[in-house]
Structures are given as structure tokens and as C-alpha cells.
Design a binder for these strands. Structure first.
Length: 1169
RNA sequence: GCGGGUAUAGCUCAGUUGGCUAGAGCGCAGCUCUGAUAAAGCUGAGGUCCUUGGUUCGAAUCCAAGUACCCGCACCA
């Protein structure tokens, strides 16, 4: 038997698992690659997936695109590399390993082996490698389950190899790390690498500086306590500057107070003391959003972002009033210009701290650098306190207009400090806690609210605290561990990105080299999809605005920055570009390092000799930014003859500043500004839950890949109710992703999965099972000689013709990376054309029995089988890239289990992608059939208007149309129309069927009419529509002073009495709704048949069973109808004998009502009566 | 704060260079079909096309302002 019986409700996930086995056992993937060897290359570059956890369903979206396009280009005859990538290094892995090992801090990490930092780091780094290997393998298995075809590492032996030797690429591989070294060396040669001492956001928990890219991800609206602080002026007893800060811990390190020289400041007297503050802030409504800081308060006023439960800010004036106490008040005694205040000396809030007594700043390391760079004279913080100019950066939009300046705690403070010779005092260490030298605050964490309390206590004791308030603002947090960032003076390593460029014309500035502009130039060579996202503009915008790239992390697991620094001169450093260079230059440590990957702690052992000074050089302990790891892959993994990649695809949120950026940046440097890393980028949006909310593990609405694929599980809806779901399976997920608009967020869940399965998979499966199950019964042989297509009936040639259209769409869509277009068209093909027309109309061709057919009949039936077989097998090949399992299951069965002797490939994935067969295209036939389908719909609505069900035969359907294809369809498919609409005849009418009414077609007439609309409307009213129609047929007419032709005026119609009519565009359809007694009798008989069929089913009879039938009714009309159509009824219900009168003694009996009339049905199986 | 986007049915979204009666899928309601049958089809209800103003004979569409949400950029005391 050529085919296997097909279950009507299949277990898709189970079938998928069988297909995986089939592929593995038959080495199908290897065979595919062998077929394509030596063909034109199509280069795909995989964006590495972070190997830190199992996959979620959101990963499956991108991985479906990756696989679908790779499979398409493989079927279309290209050689591919099929290499998957894993992202291995970086803080995210460290954080998970810290959790595993229950470590809380960097100190814990360095004490893993008590007393041995180096061994501790080694153990920690090994744990990170282990974690990556573990989850890379998990993700590999899951990707295989998704149906992704890549050169996977499968066996234990594969995984025992080093990352460099495995089939997938790993960013922790030596190849990758050394490639980045060569990149950094090139940057160094262009003098782009520099060491920056700067105040940067810092995560005290992770102990790392946070780069600009990372900071974007962590802003959150939070509450802090802000305070107003008095700074007594040394030369004006009883007078104070009033400053405001949201970070009280930085007051310990105050060195200056910045004013804007152009602003006016008030001198406010309160209880005998004088306070200085900016005039503009005094009465300001502080809850209005900053913006219009000009005086006119009518300027647009937004409301400040605020948190519920936090009281509104009061104005500064109000604070003065309430502090004045009852009956008293403040007094404005004078105004001064900011510039007059410059140089005023004041007493700092924490001048008693040792840290304030250190020349050049604090702590010593900082002081050393400050001294070396000449950033300030030999003064201590306590001595340096004075009013400085902050220029226009000091505004009246926030605070008091006098800015507390701590050059060791703020970016701009640091700049002001350098400009004014103020020594920086850096209060906190890499753990975010106060250094020694800060008195009672020593060891306290700066982010801890209790620390603010301690600061407030100190201030109170000294009478420096003017007020405390609860304040809400957006504040950066660590994107990994969510702790608050602190601004801290650090030394980090940067790549200088160079001068700005004009995004409209991104060339390097005249003369000078600008890395930024070079990247921009390369970026313009890349295609960003989908177009609606304006990806290129986004990327250029980022390139324009970004600062220098901070590439260092003071951590353990990652790229070892190949920077060696002179032991005596921290400004003298070198970048090493390769392992070979390192070996050559090493004067110590090579023996120990050799045999290890270039990771900590081993690489740290290498010591170089400074050729200029003869001093020893040590590697900086920092590791690299992980986007370097992912950014180099176009060079570290793609061989030269595979560059640039034809295609990459990733979820775009964030990636314009992360992977896309890194890839462009590193490739620009590596190719000296010549070659982009890829030609086309397809971005896609974010995967949400089925209610449109972000998926979060904690919210219970995220779905693990394994559960979606095989296990089933449950999700929580937004109200927290639990919704269980069954396994969805890979192909349903994949189709969901393929049919999605990549620019929009995707809603994933059991409900969308069910919809997609019902809409596509089950519809297709129904067609397939219908075909196969009849083909089995009929012994259809797919290898039998073909009935020439020309000799097949219209409907066969029609679907083959439309199938070519689908093939054309498929090829265009895949080639332009628009799989959605193909998927939606395929759905329409399967639903509207194959299922709802071809199969439905052809059921009787398939089930007609060979025994009663003549030669022509048998040939017609063979044509039907062959047509449907061709359609289904072609569909299998078309959808194979999207739903590889479903396609494979159907293909194998349809091609008699892949017997290659029959000319079919043993796997659908070893086929070529279908090409359009021009000889099968019959445009007229396709048009005519479309017209037919439209006519059926119209006729259906006309029936509906006439309130006559399809079972009731009607006399006549009339059609009036100006469409040639409708006219042709009417002639060509008259029988079909009669059958579908259950009418006795269908007639093409030469004249309109319906009462005319005229209507102007503004689409064509609008331009002619213009402003004369009213005149034309008036003129229209005076002419009968029928006359208008007649005159128009003769030629253009004049109406209201405007010449109009037949195209400009549409004549519309309504039906005459007894008829029901509908109109669509140029076609009118009218159906005769009147019933003659004959028609009514026939309709009744059809109802009777329907009830008898029901009764048969209820009686549990088999399809083939013959029956003895008895039909009785007290209603004479019904009995007459039964008598008149007795033979038709008997044939339809397979009654071979009649019993006149009631038959209650044997078999099955029931009573029903036919159009209100009682009918007793009795039947029994023939032979039992 | 600056720039960009979006706003259309209960939900998810289409809607061409302005053109008159604004669509689809899902959901809902009703009906039908019933030898593909735990499938399928049809019909219906449901819209201030975010608001206001403007341009125009005519605006969901173009312009301006406003509102809400989203994205990017900038965020300082």
C-alpha cells in the first residue's frame, strides 16, 4: 500500500519527535549539505545566543527566522556554513555563577580558595566556563528540537573538544579572543585607546563601571531623600550659601559650590541669618516639569514624573515661611549677581574628616594622579572650598541655583574641579562603601538609606541641615543586578570614537581620522529591514551621539584586555595584538601561561619589558566589554571568502547600540573602513505574552521552550489566574513567528497558538488526510502516467495555475527576507482555495466508485488525484523552510515513504525549492475562477436577503455585469453556480436587474468637478438615473457645467419585488425568492433527507449500510413532497425498501418537525427487517 | 527636555498618490452544512477612525496645536 492512513487529529509534537529521529538516522542534514557543496555561497552570520540559561520561547522567534532563511537558501541551491554561535563571556555569566556558588561580593570570589586570590579567580573562571558549556549544550538540544539545522555539537566527544575545535563558535574561544586583540592593536596603532580617569556610574555590588550602552537599560523612577544644606561663608559671618542634593553621601566630599555668573541671587534673611539662593527658584512650582525655566510661567507646563504616595514638593519660599514660624516671616534683603559671588570661601559640611585634609585630593592613588596631571594645586579639600562658576550648566530648573560640587562624585563636578583647581575627593571604594578617612561613615554603603540618615545626623549636629524632603527622579541602576549606581572616580579604558559627523553625509571630517565617521560610512552600505523601522537612521543616530566606548570591566570572566602598563608610569602602556606577539615580548610568565586560554588569572602572569624605559610592564587586571566578543565574530568566525555575511537577524531593541553597533564598529576597523560585516539586517520586535504584557519569570507569564515544545504547562493571566496549556509543538510556534510582522511585538501564548493551528496546520492537515485516505481506498499510484494537464478539468488547471502564483510569491518573499508575506499568502491559498473550494467542490470526484465509472470517469478521477498530489507535494516544499516537520511528515507519506525509486527525494528537505512553471499559468482561468468565487459569495448574500436557506431550491439567478471575467465565469461555470447556490438556472442579463440610482464616482470625476460639486449634485437630482445611464452609454454628458463620462457616474440598482439583489462593484446579482409549489416540495424533500441522515447516524449505522425506511406524517403537504421525491430520497439515504405506514416494531424510530410539520421516521438496517 | 513613531470594532491589526457605504482575523450572537465531521461555511451586531482647529468640492488619510502610549537620544546638583 503506497500511503499510510492519516489520523484526523494528529499529535503534532509526537510527529515532530519522530521526524527528528528520521533526520538523525538518515543523516538528512548531511545529505542536504552534500547536495549544495560547491554551489554559490549564501553567507549567514549567527548572532551569538548567551549561553547562560535554557531557551525561552522568545529565543525561538529569531531562531525560526534564522533556520527558515537558511533552509530556503539551501533548497534554492546555495552552499551555507550552518554555524551557530554562543556568547560566553561577561558579567551575566558571572552573576549566575555567583548565585550558584552563593557568593555575595568580589571579595567572596577572591576568597574561593582561602588566602589565595589567584587560585580563587582560576576556580571562578573555570566555573564560568563550565556554566557556559552546560547551557550551550542545553540550548543546542533545544535548538535541534525547534528544528534548527546547524552543524551542531551533539555527542559527548564533540563537547569534550575545546571551544575552538567545536562546530558552533564560542566567543570564549581563543580564536575569538585573539581576534579582538588584533582589533585593539589596530585601534592602538591609530591612537584610539586611552586610559580615562573619570567619574563614571559604578555598580557597588558587581564592582564594575557601567558603560554608556549599559546605562541606558537601567534607568528607573525611584524615591530618594534630598536635602538642603547650609554652607557658612567664611568672610561673611552669619551668611550661608544654600545648596541642594539628592545624594547626601557626596556631601562628605564637597569641595566647591557652583553658581551661574549670569543668574541673579537673592539674599534672604531668616531668623537673623542670611541665605543665598537663585532668584528664579525661590517661588518656583517645583512640581511642574522642568523645561520652560524662563520667567513666563505661562509656558507649557508638564507635570513632573512622580510616584504615588510621595508628597508633592513644596516651594522653597514655603520652606522659608514655615521655618520662620508663626507670626514671623523671612525677608529678602538684597540681590547679587552670580559673578559677584565667585571666589567666596565657605566652610564645608565635613571639613573635620581626614579625607578633607589631604593635598591634591583623596585617597592617595587619586591624589597621585591629580598631581601628575596637574589638575589642581597643592591644596586640601577643606582649604579649597569656594564659589566657582558652573556656567550655564547651573540652571534654575532644579535645586537652589547653587550646586554642591564634589569632583570625586559627579561627572560634571569633576570637570568643574579640573577647571577651577579643586582637588577631587573620592569617598567610596569599588564595593560602594566609604573608605577610611571618612570618620563614622567608614565602611557604610553609599547606596544604603541608613547612610543618608547618618549624614543627616552629622549635619544636624553641626547645624548645617536646612531641610530634608522626599524626592522622585529617574536614577540609573545596574542593568544586571538592579542595584543603584553610584558615581565614582575610576580609571577605565576607552576607545576614542573620534569627531562628529553629519548623518546626512557621513564621511570622515577633512584631514582627520574619525572612527565614528568611518563606521557611519560603512553603515550606509547596509540594508536595514523591516524598512518601517528606519534602522539605518537609528544606527546613525546612535553613532552620532555615543560617547567614547568604555571597554574595561574590573571583573574576572571575559576577554583579557591585552594592555600592559609600565610599572612606574601609569601613562605608558602598550597593546598586544596576538598570542605570537605576546610570546615574543614576554620576559616572565610564559611557561606558566602556555597551555591556558587567554583568560585570567593565567594571562596576568605575563610580564613584558618596556622597550623605552626598560621597566617591567604588567597587564591591567581588567577584562573586556562583552560586546567586543560578539562584535568580532564577522572576522573571527567567517572565513574571508564568506565575508561580508549576506544576512543577519536579531531582535532589535537595544541592538542598535549593542550587537549591530559592535559588529559594524569592529568590522570597520578590521577592514580599514572598507567592508560592512553584513549586507542585510532583519530586525524584529519583542515577544510578549498573549495579553500583550512583558514576559517575566516572576509574573508567571513567561513560557519555557521545553514546555511550549513538548511538555505543556501553565501561565498566569494578568489577574493572576492560572491557565493550563498543552504542548504547542515546534511547527506551530514556527508558523506563528513566520506569519508575524517583524516590526510589531508578537503576542505568544496558547491562545494565539490554537488560532494558528486551526487556521493553518489543521486546515492543511484536513486536506492532506482527505486526500490520503481516499487515495488508499482507491489505490492511487503517484507514479502512474500523468493525465496531461491540458486534458484536466478547469478546476484542476485553476488550482495548478494559482499554485504557481504562490510559488512566485514564496520566492520573492524569501529572497527579500519577508517570510510573513509568503506565510499569509500560503494561509489564504490553503484556506480559501485548496480547502474551501478545491476539496469541497471535488469531494465526489474522489469518492466516486471505480466500479460505476467509465473510462473517462476514471481518467477524470485520476486527474483529480494527480492534481491534488501535485498541489500537496508542492506545498510541502514551499512550507518546508517554515514548518520543516509538518512538511516532512506529509511529504514522506505522499511520496510513498520517500521511495527514491519513484523519483521522489527521501526527504522534502532534499528537494529543490519549487520554481514557477509558466506553462501551468492560465491567467484567464484564474481570473474567471476568482469571478466565480465572487459570484458565489454574491449569490449567497442574495439568498440571505431573500431569507431562503441553501437547501431550498430556487428558480433563477440573474447576473448583470460589466466585467468580462464575470461574464465568462457565468458561461463557463453555470453548472457549478447552480449547484453551489441551489438554483434551477442562472442567466446573464443584458440589462440592469435593479432599479437605477446614479452616483458620482469622485475618484475619477473629482478632478473634473472640483469646486462645482454642489451644482453637479443639483443637476443630478433633476435627471432620472435610467436616462442618465442611457445617455452615458452614448457618450460624455454635461452636468452642472461639467463634462462627465461613463466612468464618472456609477449607476446603482435595487431589486424588483419578489427578487433579492445585491451589487458589488460592476456586478449585480438577483435571485428569485418566490417559491412555486414544486420548488417548495423539493425543498421539503431535502429537509427530509437531512433528517433521515441524522437518524441513520443516531442509529449507529455504517456509511455503507442499506436501510428499510418508513416516513409518515399527518401533514398532507409533506407526504406529497415525499411521494414526489421518493426516488431521490431513497438514493440519498441508501434506502432499498420502503415500508408504508409507521414502523415502530423494528429498528430505529424518531419524530422530527419539518418546517413545523411532524414527521415520523422509522428505519432499520437492511437484512434485519 | 529633544527627536521619531503610534492612536481605526471588545482584542490584534490592514487601510495605496485625499474620493463618498472604513476593512480582516479572533471573540461574541444567530444561522447553515454535515460521508473531510471534535472539521467547515454564512450572516449579524459592534466604530465620535484620540481631540480641536485648518487646507479642500471632499479628510481615517494632508497641515497645525493638544492628549495618551511606545521607541530612540539627552538627563545634571
Amino acid at each position: 500500500m503506497p500511503f499510510e492512513k492519516v489520523e484526523s487529529s494528529p499529535d503534532f509534537p509526537a510527529l515532530e519527535r519522530q521526524v527528528l529521529k528520521f533526520w538523525a538516522e538518515n543523516a538528512t542534514f548531511e545529505k542536504r549539505k552534500a547536495l549544495n557543496a560547491g554551489k554559490p555561497k549564501w553567507s549567514f552570520l549567527d548572532g551569538p545566543i548567551t549561553a547562560n540559561n535554557p531557551m525561552g520561547v522568545h529565543h525561538a522567534w529569531g531562531r525560526t527566522y534564522k533556520d527558515a532563511y537558511c533552509r530556503y537558501f539551501a533548497m534554492a541551491g546555495h552552499e551555507l556554513r550552518f554555524q551557530n554561535g554562543f556568547d560566553c563571556q561577561g558579567l551575566w555569566v558571572e552573576v549566575e555563577v555567583e548565585k550558584e556558588l552563593r557568593l555575595k561580593s568580589k571579595r567572596d570570589i577572591e576568597s574561593l580558595v582561602p588566602g589565595n586570590v589567584e587560585a580563587s579567580i582560576d576556580r571562578f573562571v573555570q566555573a564560568c566556563k563550565d556554566r557556559v558549556n552546560t547551557f550551550a549544550r542545553v540550548q543546542t538540544d533545544q535548538s535541534i528540537r525547534l528544528g534548527m539545522w546547524m552543524n551542531w555539537d551533539v555527542t559527548d566527544a564533540d563537547w569534550a573538544k575545546t571551544p575552538d575545535e567545536r562546530k558552533s563558535y564560542f566567543t570564549m574561544a581563543e580564536r575569538n579572543n585573539y581576534a579582538i586583540w588584533s582589533f585593539l592593536k589596530k585601534c592602538f596603532a591609530k591612537k584610539l585607546i586611552y586610559r580615562g580617569y573619570d567619574v563614571m556610574p559604578w555598580c557597588g555590588r558587581c564592582g564594575v563601571g557601567i558603560s554608556e550602552q549599559e546605562m541606558k537599560e537601567g534607568y528607573k523612577l525611584v524615591e530618594h531623600r534630598a536635602c538642603f544644606v547650609k554652607l557658612p561663608l567664611l568672610d561673611k559671618p552669619g551668611e550661608n550659601l544654600l545648596v541642594w542634593t539628592t545624594t547626601p553621601w557626596t556631601l562628605t566630599s564637597n569641595v566647591g559650590a557652583a553658581v551661574n555668573p549670569k543668574l541673579t541671587y537673592l539674599k534672604v534673611k531668616l531668623k537673623g541669618e542670611i541665605y543665598y539662593l537663585a532668584k528664579g527658584v525661590f517661588k518656583q512650582d517645583r512640581m511642574a516639569s522642568s523645561g520652560g525655566d524662563e520667567e513666563d510661567s505661562t509656558a507649557k507646563k508638564g507635570k513632573r514624573e512622580w510616584l504615588d504616595g510621595v508628597p508633592n514638593l513644596s516651594s522653597i519660599e514655603q520652606m522659608f515661611k514655615s521655618k520662620a514660624g508663626k507670626g514671623e516671616n523671612y525677608e529678602i534683603v538684597d540681590e547679587v549677581k552670580g559673578e559677584e559671588m565667585l571666589g567666596w570661601r565657605y566652610a564645608g559640611p565635613f571639613d573635620d574628616l581626614p579625607a578633607q585634609q589631604s593635598e591634591y585630593g583623596f585617597p592617595e592613588e587619586v591624589a597621585k594622579i591629580v598631581k601628575q596631571n596637574g589638575w589642581c594645586p597643592a591644596v586640601t579639600g577643606a582649604v579649597a572650598h569656594r564659589v566657582v562658576s558652573g556656567g550655564d550648566d547651573v540652571s534654575e530648573s532644579e535645586g537652589t541655583g547653587i550646586v554642591h560640587t564634589a569632583p570625586g562624585c559627579g561627572d560634571i563636578d569633576f570637570a568643574w574641579g579640573k577647571a577651577n583647581g579643586l582637588p577631587p575627593i573620592a569617598p567610596i571604594g569599588d564595593d560602594g562603601c566609604f573608605h577610611k578617612g571618612f570618620g563614622s561613615l567608614e565602611g557604610k554603603n553609599a547606596a544604603d538609606p541608613a547612610t543618608a540618615d547618618a549624614v543627616f545626623e552629622e549635619l544636624k549636629k553641626k547645624d548645617r541641615l536646612f531641610g530634608i524632603e522626599r524626592y522622585v527622579h529617574r536614577y540609573p541602576h545596574c542593568w544586571r543586578c538592579k542595584t543603584e549606581l553610584l558615581y565614582r572616580l575610576v580609571d577605565e579604558w576607552f576607545i576614542g570614537m573620534g569627531a562628529a559627523f553629519d548623518p546626512a553625509n557621513p564621511q570622515s571630517p577633512e584631514g582627520g581620522y574619525s572612527f565614528r565617521a568611518e563606521i557611519a560610512k560603512v553603515t550606509t552600505q547596509v540594508t536595514f529591514l523591516p524598512e518601517s523601522l528606519n534602522g539605518r537612521a537609528r544606527e546613525l543616530d546612535w553613532l552620532k551621539n555615543m560617547g567614547d566606548w568604555m571597554i574595561s570591566k574590573k571583573r574576572y570572566w571575559g576577554l583579557a584586555l591585552p594592555i600592559w602598563v609600565d610599572e612606574k608610569d601609569p601613562t605608558d602602556f602598550e597593546v598586544i595584538g596576538s598570542r605570537e606577539e605576546l610570546k615574543e615580548r614576554a620576559i616572565e610568565g610564559w611557561q606558566e601561561f602556555d597551555g591556558h586560554t587567554p583568560h585570567r588569572p593565567w594571562v596576568d602572569k605575563i610580564v613584558l619589558k618596556n622597550p623605552r624605559t626598560g621597566n617591567r610592564m604588567f597587564r591591567v587586571p581588567d577584562v573586556g566589554n562583552p560586546w567586543l566578543d560578539a562584535g568580532i565574530v564577522a572576522y573571527s568566525t567567517l572565513p574571508a571568502d564568506w565575508r561580508p555575511a549576506d544576512f543577519i537577524t536579531e531582535s532589535f531593541p537595544g541592538q542598535f547600540r549593542n550587537w549591530f553597533y559592535a559588529l559594524l564598529a569592529l568590522s570597520t576597523m578590521m577592514s580599514d573602513g572598507e567592508v560592512p560585516p553584513f549586507k542585510t539586517l532583519l530586525g524584529f520586535a519583542t515577544c510578549k505574552d498573549q495579553f500583550g504584557h512583558d514576559m517575566h519569570k516572576s509574573a508567571g507569564n513567561s513560557i519555557e521552550f521545553n514546555k511550549a515544545a513538548d511538555e505543556g504547562g501553565e501561565i498566569k493571566d494578568p489577574k493572576g489566574a492560572t491557565i493550563p496549556f498543552n504542548a504547542i509543538g515546534a511547527d506551530v510556534m514556527r508558523w506563528l513567528y513566520c506569519r508575524q510582522n517583524p516590526a510589531s511585538n508578537l503576542l505568544f501564548g496558547p491562545k494565539p497558538a490554537d488560532e494558528v493551528r486551526a487556521k493553518f496546520h489543521l486546515k492543511l492537515w484536513n486536506c492532506y488526510s482527505f486526500f490520503v485516505n481516499y487515495a488508499i481506498a482507491d489505490n492511487f499510484d503517484p507514479t502512474a502516467a500523468q493525465v496531461p494537464v491540458k486534458e484536466r478539468p478547469d478546476i484542476d488547471r485553476w488550482i495548478l495555475s494559482d499554485l504557481q502564483g504562490l510559488i512566485r510569491t514564496a520566492r520573492e518573499a524569501f529572497e527579500s527576507f519577508d517570510v510573513m508575506r509568503f506565510a499569509l499568502e500560503a494561509e489564504r491559498f490553503v484556506d480559501d482555495r485548496l480547502s474551501n473550494w478545491y476539496v469541497r467542490r471535488n469531494r465526489d470526484r474522489f469518492w466516486s466508485s471505480n466500479a460505476v465509472l467509465d473510462d473517462a470517469g476514471r481518467r477524470d478521477k485520476l486527474a483529480a488525484y494527480q492534481t491534488m498530489h501535485a498541489v500537496l507535494t508542492t506545498l510541502c516544499r514551499l512550507i518546508a523552510p517554515c514548518v520543516p516537520f509538518l512538511a516532512e511528515v506529509m511529504w514522506k507519506n505522499l511520496t510513498a515513504h520517500g521511495r527514491s525509486s519513484a523519483g521522489f527525494a527521501p526527504s522534502v528537505h532534499l528537494c529543490d525549492f519549487p520554481s514557477v512553471d509558466e506553462t501551468l499559468i492560465d491567467t484567464d482561468l484564474s481570473d474567471d475562477t476568482q469571478a466565480l468565487l465572487d459570484l458565489i459569495t454574491l449569490g449567497g448574500s442574495a439568498r440571505n436577503l431573500a431569507k431562503q436557506v441553501v437547501r431550498q431550491p430556487l428558480a433563477e439567478l440573474r447576473v448583470y455585469t460589466d466585467s468580462d471575467s464575470v461574464k465568462r465565469a457565468l458561461r463557463r461555470f453555470a453548472t457549478t453556480i447552480c449547484d453551489e447556490l441551489n438554483v434551477k438556472s442562472v442567466v446573464l442579463s443584458e440589462s440592469p436587474l435593479l432599479k437605477a440610482s446614479a452616483k458620482i464616482q469622485m475618484k475619477t470625476a473629482g478632478a473634473k468637478i472640483g469646486a462645482k460639486r454642489k451644482e453637479v449634485d443639483e443637476a443630478m437630482k433633476t435627471v432620472a438615473a435610467e436616462d442618465l445611464a442611457k445617455r452615458l452609454r452614448a457618450g460624455p454628458i454635461e452636468l452642472g457645467g461639467v463634462a462627465l463620462d461613463a466612468n464618472d457616474i456609477a449607476i446603482e440598482y435595487t431589486a424588483e419585488s419578489g427578487w433579492a439583489g445585491v451589487v458589488d462593484r460592476g456586478t449585480q446579482v438577483a435571485i428569485d425568492g418566490r417559491l412555486t409549489p414544486e420548488l417548495r416540495a423539493e425543498g421539503l424533500s431535502r429537509h427530509v433527507i437531512r433528517f433521515v441522515q441524522d437518524a441513520r447516524k443516531n442509529a449507529g449505522l455504517d456509511l455503507a449500510d442499506k436501510i428499510v425506511l418508513s416516513l409518515t406524517s399527518p401533514a398532507e403537504e409533506l407526504m406529497a413532497a415525499i411521494r414526489a421525491h421518493r426516488d431521490a430520497i431513497a438514493a440519498a439515504v441508501q434506502a432499498t425498501a420502503w415500508v408504508d405506514g409507521p414502523m415502530t416494531d423494528l429498528g430505529f424510530a424518531t419524530t422530527v418537525k419539518v418546517d413545523g410539520m411532524e414527521l415520523m421516521i422509522g428505519l432499520s438496517k437492511q437484512g434485519l427487517a
